[in-house]
Simulated scan of single mutants.
Amino acid sequence: AVSNCSSCLTDGDSFEPPNAVKGDVARMVMYMAVRYEGGDGFADLEANNQVNGSTPYLGKISVLLQWHAQDPPSSAEQRRNDIIDSQYQGNRNPFIDHPEWAQSVFG
């Protein structure tokens, strides 16, 4: 268990959020994988299908796609995407607006 998150699990090389937010986490990770491609002052963050330890890989894409399908975007997640776009970043997470794109990009 993770302190301050009794529904979260972790071990030496992985993390599992609560079921209620697994899709949210998956879409965040997929967004970071397509947004941060290196060369812009950020690491080239990628998802693959291995447990990666300390490399810049973010997670097992097969698990992320499973979480994405199991927990579709909620109205709260869509509102958060709207606020992030309009008040902070000026861009959107496309996997919230178009959940079908996850399989197209990562499937």
Rank of each mutant, 00 (worst) to 15 (best):
A26M: 07
S75P: 05
R80N: 11
L45Q: 04
N4H: 15
Q78Y: 05
H98R: 15
S14E: 06
P56H: 04
C8M: 05
P72Y: 07
S74V: 02
Q66V: 02
P56D: 08
Q87C: 09
V21T: 14
T55Y: 08
H68F: 01
W101A: 08
S54M: 10
S86R: 13
H68C: 01
S6W: 08
I61Y: 02
R80V: 08
G23L: 05
P56L: 00
N19F: 07
K60R: 10
S62W: 03
K22S: 08
E100C: 06
Y57F: 09
A102C: 13
N91M: 08
P18K: 12
G59V: 00
A20C: 14
S6I: 12
P18A: 14
R35Y: 07
F42N: 15
L45W: 08
Y36R: 06
Y31N: 08
Q87S: 12
A47Y: 00
E46N: 10
A47V: 15
M30K: 00
V29T: 06
C5A: 13
V2W: 07
A20Y: 12
S3D: 13
D71L: 05
P73W: 03
D24S: 15
D40G: 09
F95A: 03
I83R: 06
M32V: 08
P17A: 13
S74G: 04
A102F: 05
Y88H: 11
T55W: 06
S74R: 06
R92L: 13
A20L: 10
V51I: 14
Q103Y: 12
T10V: 14
I83N: 02
S6Y: 08
M30Q: 04
A33C: 12
I84D: 09
G23K: 01
Q70E: 15
Q70S: 15
F15W: 12
V34P: 02
M32Q: 07
G41M: 03
V105Q: 05
S62A: 05
G12I: 11
A1N: 03
R35P: 00
N19Q: 12
K22C: 12
V21E: 13
D82T: 06
N48S: 09
D44C: 07
Q70H: 09
L65T: 03
T10F: 12
G59H: 02
I84V: 12
Q89A: 13
S54E: 12
Y57L: 13
G38M: 06
A102P: 04
M30H: 02
L9P: 00
L65S: 01
Q103C: 05
N91C: 10
F15Y: 12
P17R: 03
Y57D: 07
P17Y: 07
A1D: 03
I84K: 05
G23R: 04
S6V: 14
V25W: 10
N19M: 14
G38Q: 06
E77K: 04
F42C: 11
S74F: 06
D85Q: 14
G41R: 03
Q66Y: 11
S14W: 09
V51C: 07
A26Y: 00
L64T: 01
E77V: 08
C8E: 01
